[in-house]
Amino acid sequence: MQFKTFTLNEANALLPEIKENLLKLQAMVGAIEARHSDLQKKKAMYKQSPVSTGAGKDDFFKEESALDFMRMEAELLLSNFARKGVQLKMIDPGLIDFPAVWDGNDVLLCWKQGEERITHYHGWNDGFMGRKPIPEGGTQDANN
């Protein structure tokens, strides 16, 4: 499998942009969830109402269309992570992996939202629970 790999310096240099994109995505997901919940409540009230409340199926169509557009925007934000070569593992809290080669092994440099910089890594099959601190004496291969 061919994938972009990062040095530790490259991954840390990309973090400010990744953090900004993550915050945008989190806000978008929150807005989608809130709007979806409101729409579901309105639909339930409409179905239960014996009298017309003024809201109709056209209003629901407009709201559903707006939600679809918001979802497309969120998908675009999601795809931006992949285009940069990073792996978004979790949106909230943010968990991002950067493919890398460390001491000759394919690893993932691991960053969790709230951390100042990347200080951990794990194997491709280890996941977050297998995180290890990046050793001071370890060598990162030249890659890309």
Rank of each mutant, 00 (worst) to 15 (best):
I134G: 04
P50D: 10
D68K: 12
F69C: 00
I18Y: 01
N80L: 10
L22T: 00
G130D: 12
K62Q: 14
G114S: 08
K41H: 15
E136Q: 11
Q87R: 15
D103K: 09
G114A: 13
K47W: 13
L14Q: 13
H122F: 08
M90P: 00
L22A: 02
S65I: 00
K84C: 03
Q113H: 06
G56A: 02
G85Y: 05
G54S: 06
I118F: 09
A27H: 03
D58A: 15
M129L: 12
K84M: 10
T119W: 00
E63I: 04
P50Q: 11
V29I: 14
G30Q: 06
L14Y: 07
F128P: 02
G138E: 05
A100P: 08
L95W: 12
G123E: 08
G56H: 11
G130C: 14
G137K: 12
A55M: 05
R117F: 04
F98L: 06
G94M: 13
P133N: 00
R71K: 14
K132C: 03
L25R: 01
M45S: 13
Q87A: 08
D68A: 13
P16K: 10
K57H: 03
N21G: 11
A82I: 01
F60S: 05
P16Y: 07
F128G: 02
W111V: 08
E115V: 09
V86Q: 05
K89M: 09
Q48A: 15
F98Y: 14
P133V: 01
L22I: 07
I18T: 13
N21I: 04
A44F: 12
F128A: 07
D106P: 04
R117T: 09
G104L: 06
A66G: 10
E64T: 09
F98E: 09
D38R: 11
K19T: 10
Y121F: 15
M28H: 00
G94I: 12
E64R: 06
A74V: 00
A13C: 03
